[in-house]
Amino acid sequence: MRILKFWPLLTLFALAGCSGNWGWYVVNPTTPAGQRNLMFLLDGLYYTIALSVTAIAISVLLGLLVALPGLARQRPPRVINRVYVELVRAVPILVLILWVYYGLPQVADISISVFWAGVLALAISDSAFQAEIFRAGIQSIDRGQHEAAHSISLSYVDKMRFVILPQAIKRILPALGNQLVYMLKMSSLVSVIGMEELTRRANELVVTEYRPLEIYTVLVMEYLVLILLVSAGVRWLESRMGMSDRR
């Protein structure tokens, strides 16, 4: 069954074997030119990872901050939560990236690097989803836990920090893992503003080598390996945390 997970790879290898139009020399690791090209492509890995990890860290914090008013008993904070989530979710990531990079500097009179524009756009876009994940996670915690925290006079912050969030985060870990995978993929969109990540590197090489099929195939595999590794990491983390989870 496990092998089924690799069917895209297998398909690609099969294709490579039966077509005469492939020109694998561009990324042939045994030739100096192929090596150089491969290194050029792999070099984008750093920014793809840096971008995604920074963005997910910010979006988790932002998502939590947006989720909390959504859980309030009063109406005004809940409205703030709804408006933020609906508004942000309605904007395509690509559009948000363009707006943050080209628009924000004019509106806010600041200069923003390609990297931080990308991080900001990805983080804002993802935070709406994170907020929904957190809200669902927190709501899934039994009311008795809130009441017990109240009965020993914990403040709201202490209740969240020591009682509710540790339990909620364990439950939403799979969803947070999914968001990281999603983020890794969406980071490819930041290539449009010139971020030198995996996709941009591939585009640049295609322009000089005229071998889109082979180069984009390598690109596909780069993402595939990266994401399979992240998925495995998330599963490992889940099982580790699961050991101390008593429910």
Partner: peptide, 21 residues
């Protein structure tokens, strides 16, 4: 329903209130 904190040890269940509140 007792409402003990399932993610905390018995000791931590008992000391949380005294420590924080």
């Amino acid at each position: 329903q007792f409402n003990l904190f399932p993610h905390l040890s018995i000791l931590d269940n008992l000391t949380l209130g005294p420590l924080r509140a």
